[in-house]
Design a protein around this nucleic acid. Structure first.
Lengths: 225, 225
DNA sequence: CGCGAAATTAACCGTTTATTGGCATGAAGC
DNA sequence: GCTTCATGCCAATAAACGGTTAATTTCGCG
């Protein structure tokens, strides 16, 4: 190596490299953050390991060092994304509210969470394109998702007991409807907006649909069969 | 070229080539059919031109001859997929039915169409991953989708006039809800099934949700604000 | 201090992939 | 019969792209 190279090397060094001392956890999180962005934007096949490495503060080799393969990296990105919604969901304390209000809150939470986390929505879409084969193998994700149904089942039981909820409905079916209405608005904003010439992210429209979705679900539960 | 090559050449000739007489339209449709399958299964980035060519009765060269590029081929696949649902939608003749029944039919049709055309659903998912940038450029698709809203608007007006529909609702919003509930069940069957350990395609469950979705929409329209 | 393991880096490799060129050829219309 | 369109085959290409090699640096610990 020529002296000039050495100088050049040390020069860029102090500017961009070796600023961070070795910190495995931070490196991993850095990679996961960037990978989340990359995969959620371009899909799994469309996501580029090189692109991830470039946007990272570290190198491509580190990705393989910590995650083994593109696929395992993607799986971890997915798991982390799912853990996000669950963590928020857990601290909702719906039990203190009357059933109708609790249901409203739940729907609104779902609606808002999807809106605020489009990258999560996109990752789930992508995973579905791949027939959920990664999620199927993750016991963690599967286990941590059951509570969502348990909460709903409990809420439904409370509502029926108090006579507010007139409908019999399977908690899984209710969850399906709430998710569908929350998810689709974000996942299909592109095509829906293009086809019907509207911007689903426009605050006014979003607020209107937020109320609509909530009212629809609540109205159904309250109406006699 | 040696004589032996010539013989070899002519030999394979009569076996595999020139079996189909020249039929441009059929060749194009063949390519589109296979491409639909490939893209809807693997996504745009995941879809392989080689794989498409292999499953076709023709060659890769023909794909470029007729479609120019992978992207243009994908766009045409998308357009054709959208034209499918429109064609069916057109011959529904909802005007002969009373508003409530017409609405039921409409929801059921949407539910059934999505269920019966998962490849359409997947293509739309994929297009949304790409921010609908192909659809945005297709005037054809945009124009031919407006009628769906017009039909709804007319139906809503009829229902309100006759006093059956008590709710005021924007036709686009109604379309959004119907689509969401129809679409999500198919698009997210993978992750939903994995997370809550159920098979959304199981006939019993599907029938139950079909009724649930229809009832929910109808109940909302019929209920007083 | 010095040593071994963990962390990090740059350069490299083999393969895949979309895309094109070249060339031959049969069919159809004029 | 001649031209033109449609088709087939195959090889080439040039750029990605996922993954790896091998060397270097950092850090904790004895």
């Amino acid at each position: 190596m020529k002296p000039s190279d050495s100088v050049e090397f040390l020069g860029t060094d102090s500017e961009s490299r070796h600023i961070r001392s070795r910190d495995p956890e931070r490196t991993k999180q850095d990679i996961l953050d960037v990978a989340t962005q990359e995969f959620s934007t371009n899909g799994y096949a469309g996501g580029r390991v090189d692109a991830i490495a470039a946007k990272t503060q570290t190198t491509k080799r580190m990705i393989y060092y910590y995650f083994g393969s593109k696929e395992q990296l993607y799986s971890q990105v997915l798991e982390r994304a799912y853990s996000g919604i669950r963590r928020v969901e857990e601290h909702m304390n719906l039990d203190r509210l009357d059933p109708e209000t609790a249901l409203r809150r739940l729907v609104e939470f779902s609606f808002d969470y999807h809106h605020e986390h489009p990258e999560f929505v996109r990752l789930v879409m992508i995973e579905n394109i791949h027939n959920a084969e990664h999620i199927k193998q993750s016991e963690t994700v599967k286990r941590t998702n059951i509570p969502a149904i348990t909460v709903l089942r409990h809420l439904l039981a409370r509502g029926r007991k108090s006579g507010v909820f007139k409908r019999e409905i399977d908690p899984v079916d209710l969850h399906f409807m709430i998710s569908a209405l929350s998810f689709y608005r974000v996942s299909n904003a592109g095509t829906f907006g293009a086809l019907y010439d509207c911007d689903l992210n426009e605050p006014r429209l979003r607020e209107r649909q937020r109320r609509l979705v909530t009212d629809t679900i609540v109205t159904f539960l309250l109406s006699p069969g």
